[in-house]
Nucleic acid binder design. Structure first.
Length: 361
DNA sequence: GACGCGTGGAG
DNA sequence: TCTCCAAGCGT
């Protein structure tokens, strides 16, 4: 391809075969022993790829093992309840991933008899499967020659070919996929894609890349010109918006009042403490308590914590509200739970933090 | 194309 | 303590 010809002195075919050979040999020798590499079951590859989206390998490992132990086959997952499935994802973040996965798995069970589609058009239609995940599943599980371009791959390509395209821009991924079309070998597309990612994760790291141990350093333009520190180019993300939030810890006897968050937006569908994020949180909470005609015994802000999401920074005040007695009536998406069985529900970590703080006091 | 969407770890 | 995240996708 022209791009490679322009940036390298050797003929293109030599570059391509060197990258293929060296990378595959390196991967065969140094690949990490990861639980989703024990076989190439399309279902397990699928689950692992969804979990690995924007999430580190070391974080994913225990979640993957628990998830597969609980739902060993695609049919087990398809037949499971939403609550059970979300519970296995608790604390992993980006919860729409697990809802989309469950939905897509049920569709595969219904429409494809439980066999994960091996055609790009079909698999790409499934919820939660975008260009990267489609490529990863097809290449790893079905040995199809399809690019799987993630952040690692873009970093590796940016350095090898000295590309200054901003990898934060979606259009850049298309360009990287075109490179993959040239580089990926027919005989080992899955290993090659994984090798690129493995290299990016362990050698060609964002900072302080270990070029001395890199199998393709001899053909790497960034290594040649010492451009490692300025490649890849990436515009920095916006800082999270600060928001003042109040959590209501409403208790009566040994019971605590919990609510399910709306099914869209931040922490969609997750269990939580009643949460108020207006300019004046206490005013809204006052109304909340009044409307329910609860007899409030005492109120006190007992703890302050903060929690940073990818785009929000919550400064949280947790208020303990004691009622005289447990109200009998309870709406949909609400529940009184004994304090010792709270974690039967799936809570995102920000609420687990808050619950932990309040249980200690 | 830009933004919304979590979390815990590394430097 | 602070910054930048990490194997992206949906809207």
């Amino acid at each position: 391809m022209q791009l490679i010809m322009n940036t390298m002195e050797r003929p293109e075919s030599t570059i391509v075969s060197t990258i293929q050979t060296e990378l595959l040999h390196w991967y065969a020798r140094y690949q990490r022993d990861l639980p989703w590499r024990k076989d190439q079951d399309p279902y397990k590859v699928w689950v692992s790829e969804i979990m690995l989206q924007q999430t580190r390998v070391n974080t994913v490992i225990p979640y993957f093992n628990r998830f597969i132990e609980r739902f060993p086959t695609i049919i087990d997952l398809a037949n499971a309840s939403d609550d059970d499935v979300v519970k296995m994802w608790e604390g992993l973040g980006y919860y729409s991933r697990v809802r989309n996965l469950h939905s897509a798995v049920k569709e595969v069970a219904d429409k494809y008899g439980g066999k994960v589609p091996d055609q790009i058009e079909e698999i790409s239609r499934l919820k939660g499967i975008g260009p990267y995940t489609a490529g990863a599943i097809l290449s790893i599980a079905y040995q199809r020659k399809v690019p799987a371009v993630d952040g690692n791959v873009m970093r590796v390509y940016s350095r090898i070919f000295a590309l200054y395209d901003d990898i934060a821009i979606p259009a850049t991924r298309k360009k990287m996929e075109a490179i993959g079309d040239v580089l990926i070998p027919e005989h080992a597309p899955g290993d090659f894609n994984q090798a690129l990612m493995e290299l990016g994760a362990t050698i060609c790291t964002p900072t302080s890349p270990q070029c001395l141990f890199c199998p393709v350093s001899s053909v790497c333009e960034a290594n040649e010109q010492e451009l490692q520190d300025e490649l890849p180019q990436k515009k920095k993300a916006k800082a999270p918006t600060p928001v003042s939030v109040r959590f209501a810890w409403i208790e009566s006897g040994h019971s605590v009042f919990l609510v399910k968050r709306p099914d869209k937006g931040l922490l969609a569908g997750m269990w939580s403490l009643p949460t108020f994020d207006q300019e004046d949180p206490s005013a809204e909470l006052d109304q909340y308590l009044l409307t329910r005609r609860w007899t409030v015994q005492s109120r006190e802000v007992e703890a302050k914590i903060d929690h940073v999401f990818s785009h929000r920074h919550w400064f949280i005040e947790i208020e303990r509200i004691k009622l005289d007695q447990v109200p009998i009536e309870c709406g949909e998406n609400e529940e009184w739970l004994d304090i010792n069985s709270i974690y039967q529900k799936a809570f995102p970590n920000v609420y687990r933090k808050a619950i932990s703080v309040m249980k200690k006091q």
